[in-house]
Write a protein that binds this DNA or RNA. Structure first.
Lengths: 197, 197
DNA sequence: CTTAAAGTAGACCAGTCAGTCTATTACAAT
DNA sequence: ATTGTAATAGACTGACTGGTCTACTTTAAG
């Protein structure tokens, strides 16, 4: 398995199609067609469609984690500012895809959590990793006194991730980033606030 | 079209299967099998699977709206208490379905928004109706002085719906209602608070 | 140069999909 | 009793599904 170029092409095309159409609506043949790879190669690299789906998730999670680190662990920027940038990047992405794609992990979480425990576990792990990134950022904000210390950062991280994923869903159905803006605004106005003396 | 019993059976079975497996993963034959209706009847009442899916959404939205009215427009109960009951009912439902089903509209919103504008519009309308119910409840809370007046109730409603839908998604992938509890806790602790004098 | 394995290639398979078709039954209006 | 229509019934269709199979090509090691 030296030459991974074909495998990577499959994963890239798969990620794109699955992001757009979902997992069940994306056929293997469609993936093969868009990247010009024959079926023999597909089943050389992946044992099944599920195996392929998991590889797509893993690849996306790994790639996206780099973005997340760059945004949320950037010690040159104040923690709350990092969060704002993270939200801004999310909104930009939503515009770029014309409000159709949203978040691959969120999409698959909805579609596959009830269908397969293997998928559910994989997606849940990704979410938990994201939450941990938020926790670090929020801890930094608490250490600086930018936000109150009486709320556990883990609880805040869960709150933020839930809210953001939900806002993405609403943005998709509404075809507008307004719910994302609304969420961010109230979050910074009411939740991520300096402690009152 | 006098006898709607067959049509209703189809919609009921469809709602159940689609809630569990999603729209694309639910075949018409599976729906027919679970309620013992022949295919001829299906295409007598519905012109296509999409038409059927829209009927399922409509039926769910109508039925659920009654629950929503009973919970959120109950003038015998303080507005914020109504909201808490609404959240409690949602959590109970999540337990009942073993964290698999979640919210039909949310599920279909993720799965179908990018696939079909007709579905997207239908689902968006349902979401907007729900938001309106929240708006009324929040306005009542503001009128009583239970929450601050400086945040537009429309913005708050959007915030709450996004957060709640996202929490349901996280609850599904985590197989635990913890994210839903977390969301509710911080919402009432930080957002739905009395105005500081 | 030989050989074994990795990878490419696509025809092919059984099963399933949404949707069509024809036949039959139930029931209302006349 | 007759006729028209609503509804039931399910066999059937072509397209497509995930997955298998065999044949071929490339690559690298001995």
């Amino acid at each position: 398995m030296k030459n991974n170029v074909t495998r990577d092409k499959l994963i890239d095309s798969g990620a794109q199609l699955i992001s757009q159409q979902g997992y069940n609506a994306t056929g293997i043949n469609a993936v093969l067609k868009t990247c010009g790879v024959p079926k023999g190669s597909f089943y050389h690299y992946f044992s099944s469609k599920e195996d392929f789906g998991l590889a797509v998730i893993e690849h996306f999670a790994t790639t996206y984690d780099e973005t997340l680190v760059a945004l949320l662990e950037d010690s040159d920027t104040p923690p709350l500012e990092r969060l704002k940038r993270y939200f801004a990047v999310g909104r930009d992405h939503m515009h770029e895809c014309d409000h159709t794609t949203g978040c691959l992990i969120g999409n698959l979480g909805q579609e596959l959590s009830g269908q397969s425990d293997i998928f559910r576990d994989a997606l849940n792990l990704v979410f938990q990793r994201w939450e941990q990134r938020f926790v670090h950022c929020l801890q930094a904000a608490q250490a600086r006194g930018d936000i109150a210390k009486h709320i556990a950062p883990e609880a805040l991280a869960s709150f933020i991730l839930s809210g953001w994923e939900g806002a993405i869903l609403r943005a998709k159905t509404l075809k507008s980033v307004e719910p994302m803006e609304q969420f961010e605004k109230i979050l910074f106005q009411q939740v991520l606030v300096r402690p009152s003396p």
